[in-house]
Design a binder for these strands. Sequence first.
DNA 1: ATCCAAGCCGGAATCTATTCGCTTGAGCCG
DNA 2: CGGCTCAAGCGAATAGATTCCGGCTTGGAT
Lengths: 162, 162
Amino acid sequence: MDAPDRTDFDILSLLQKNARLSNKELAAAVGLAPSTCHERLKRLWAGGVLRGTHAEVDPAVLGVGLEALLLIELAKHQREIVDSFMREVVSVPEVRAAFLITGRYDLVIHVAVRDTAHLKNLALDNFTNRPGVTRIETSIIYESVRRHDLPVLTTASRSELD
Amino acid sequence: MDAPDRTDFDILSLLQKNARLSNKELAAAVGLAPSTCHERLKRLWAGGVLRGTHAEVDPAVLGVGLEALLLIELAKHQREIVDSFMREVVSVPEVRAAFLITGRYDLVIHVAVRDTAHLKNLALDNFTNRPGVTRIETSIIYESVRRHDLPVLTTASRSELD
DNA sequence: ATCCAAGCCGGAATCTATTCGCTTGAGCCG
DNA sequence: CGGCTCAAGCGAATAGATTCCGGCTTGGAT
């Protein structure tokens, strides 16, 4: 928690790409004994650096045939409206992510649905007539790419190296 | 691969929330013997239903202090330009996701950076002067929420139940 | 009724995780 | 310079999980 070093960053990088790596494999990859690597892992979990692990599933198998971004404008940025929106939106199963942003729009919501009919119902039932929502632009996702590992931007990773 | 049933969906749901569940715990949770559950897991991996697992890391620890969405308009939807964009954008470490969409914008790119200076450089160096890009709107993310499990939308999950 | 295939189970062998005491080396102070 | 302290690493031992079969049960088709 206190001071992650280069080895910790290596561990984090590897686990972001493949969380199923065994402790033994991980230890070999970062050049530590399994027991030592295990100590580090425990520290990273306990310190809240590692927050969870998630399996990636083929969306089609679950019946997800369409994804979209909902670009939403709010009438006013009342804290109560915004906070409740962010709180409640995540309980909608079709919502994958919600972003409260600056700029022309106020919210971007990423949803996963079966088809266009499902998308229509979801948008109308859950978003269009919410209090504070003045407008929604629906953008269908043709194609998406993803990176599962965050960049390591802290300079510590480099200063430790020198 | 061929026909996932309700138990498979249960397994997938659980692993999307916590990929570190041991096979033993998973088996107990879905009401199977560990050996049987293990068979199913192997099938799901082999069939491409399970595609990977990823650890979630505290962004601040990695030096990520700011995230943003880049809303991009392209001059024309030439396949060559679009394809190369999607192909190359994922190799930029700061890019977390890129969406090719319908509507007013053509691309939405989710980036993770250190601060506003870093964001400026990233936008100007990697996106503004790319061929085909006519305009970029940068939206800083104030707050975001995420759901790591996709909805189960296939009716098979219910018909198997009856 | 019989056969077949699919799914499930229990147990054995193997491999892994996890703990703990010891060692090493770096930094610090007397 | 010598020695103290502390953090990090290591290896061995034990506890626990994975993984592979062989056999059992069930449900459907012939």
